[in-house]
């Protein structure tokens, strides 16, 4: 994944998870943009640091995305109280006797 794709991914995840309408004033967003600008201008000598930043950015992306997905799966399947017979049947791919085939 290219560095730009990673950055886009992180921003997309922030948009998903944060209640703000715009990220412009968000402190985390501003910090990330500053870091990206700073490391873009890094010369070859500290190229290693640049790779390091890319790894950490990808790790943060993984953190945001996996946290969101695990919550989504949890919300879909757990903690909703008792399901109706129809819902349960649909969940395991069955139909009730009076449903159309």
């Amino acid at each position: 994944m290219s560095k730009l794709q990673t950055l886009r991914g992180v921003i997309r995840e922030l948009r998903y998870s944060l209640p703000d309408r715009t990220l412009k004033d968000n402190i985390a967003f501003r910090y990330i943009m500053n870091q990206y600008r700073k490391y873009r201008t890094t010369d070859q000598q500290i190229c290693k640091a640049q790779e390091e930043m890319d790894f950490i950015a990808n790790t943060y992306l993984c953190y945001l995305r996996s946290s969101r997905l695990s919550q989504e799966i949890h919300d879909e399947f757990h903690g909703k109280g008792e399901r109706s017979i129809e819902d349960t049947a649909r969940m395991v791919g069955f139909k009730l006797p009076h449903d159309p085939k």
Binding site: I56, T59, Y60, C62, Y63, S66, S67, L69, S70, I73, H74, E76, F77, H78
Partner: peptide, 19 residues
């Protein structure tokens, strides 16, 4: 709800550890 949930939860835990 078992395998995917488990995978995503472990990933978010481990990514938190790395950070």
């Amino acid at each position: 709800w078992a395998h995917d949930l488990n995978q995503q939860e472990l990933q978010s835990r481990l990514a938190a550890v790395v950070l």
